[in-house]
Amino acid sequence: MLEGKFETASTMKKVIEAIKDSVKLCNLNCSQNDGITVQAIDDSRVLLIALKLDPSCFQEFRCDKDLVLGLDLESLSKILRQGNPEDYLTLIAEDSPDSLLIVFEDSKKDRISEFSLKLMDIDSDVLTIDEMEHDCAITLPAAAFAKVARDMKTLSESLQILVTKDSVKFKADGSIGTGSVILRARTNLDDTKESILIDLNKPVNLTFGAKYLNDIVKATPLADTVTIKLTDKAPAMFEYKLQGGFLRYYLAPKFED
């Protein structure tokens, strides 16, 4: 039996909103040691999503037997919208479940809402995701990255990211004209989450699909900062850290064969 109780529904609500536009169907893997993990590739097979919610993400967590819960994320999202962000949220499944029980409780305990979501059999490869060497790692405010990704998409389908030791430059070249935004590395000791940190082994110049970057920044409400790891001719990693877990996106850059 699985029983995972979140102190607030907001984490799960934000996580599902962050991935449901990239992936329609996915398996939730549940185990006592790892908590809940998800690995899914978007339909165009260019973006890989990896979610980890450790048992420490939950107020209470038990999972007697490893479970795979196949879910339609649009349906899950409909149910999660029924609860308030500050409600307790509990996910419950039997050992051989055909449905997932989702329970919201008002913090004053005077309202309990229960929903049952039908599960599906979803065929998906489980991929090995190793830690990768990277040419550079950038940590910046998640909102600043989201603004650049959204603004630049209006100019071009592609966004070029150029990193040097003291700045990150985003460049868009479209039919109406061009644009660029430079963010300089800075350390803000008063407010560390406002810092822009660049750890550079090698300068980087990579181009990504603006559509995918806009899918990735849907995770912005989950974390104050995003860490981006870039390597020439390798998938980039965008990481949003959660309390006791993470949501990572791996995006293949665009390049000529």
Binding site: I41, S44, D125, V126, K254, D257
Partner: peptide
């Protein structure tokens, strides 16, 4: 596409 090949080359099925 090149992008799809890149992703599947990096992340092999377990």
């Amino acid at each position: 596409t090149v992008q799809q090949r890149l992703l599947t080359n990096f992340f092999k099925p377990r």
